[in-house]
Computed example of a mutant assay.
Amino acid sequence: MNDSNLTLTVAHTDGPLALVTATGQIDIDTAPALRARALELIAAGHPHLILDLGGVTFCDSSGFNALIGILRCANDADGSLALAAVPDRLSRMLDLTGVSRLMPSYAHAAEAFKAHGATAPAGPGGGCR
């Protein structure tokens, strides 16, 4: 999916686990698309989401709220939300608000896959950085 400032790529779906790679800006205009795509994946039987944010250049409070909403919906489906390659500014916001305790962050998507007991997808970049 491609919004004017955000590209979302589902790089992997395996059983209950899905990897979504976000590239661009997560703001008031694009956060609803991120949330909607994540909720589609949860409804499709992938309640454990890994969100690779390595390509995110900006995230405002709307994006932050979308992450919390995604986490709530994943938890309601007995799932989880893990973040990978979180930009420094967003990482600080997650830490300052205490949200980082609710959604684990990993340096790379491959580490998040390993934490879930799954094998990271292969291929060019494999969705992992």
Rank of each mutant, 00 (worst) to 15 (best):
G24S: 08
V20C: 07
A77R: 03
A22R: 10
T30M: 01
P47K: 02
G63P: 02
L19P: 10
A22P: 11
Q25V: 13
A120D: 04
A43K: 07
I68E: 10
D29K: 14
A18H: 00
L94D: 00
T9C: 11
A85H: 03
T21D: 14
L39C: 10
A74E: 00
R37C: 12
F113W: 07
G24Y: 04
G45L: 02
G54C: 04
L102Q: 08
P104M: 04
L6R: 05
L39K: 09
L17V: 14
A43R: 03
V20H: 11
G24L: 04
L67F: 15
A31W: 06
P104D: 05
G24N: 04
I50N: 06
A38R: 01
K114F: 15
A66W: 04
D95C: 09
D76L: 01
L81M: 03
R37Q: 10
T30Q: 10
N5S: 15
A107H: 08
T21V: 13
G63K: 14
I50S: 05
Q25F: 13
L90E: 05
G54P: 06
I28P: 11
I42P: 00
L19T: 09
V20D: 04
A31N: 05
E111V: 09
A118K: 14
T9I: 15
P47T: 08
H46G: 06
F64L: 10
T13K: 09
A120C: 07
A107D: 13
I70S: 05
L81P: 00
H108N: 14
V10T: 13
T23W: 14
G24F: 02
G54A: 02
G126P: 04
T57P: 13
L94Y: 01
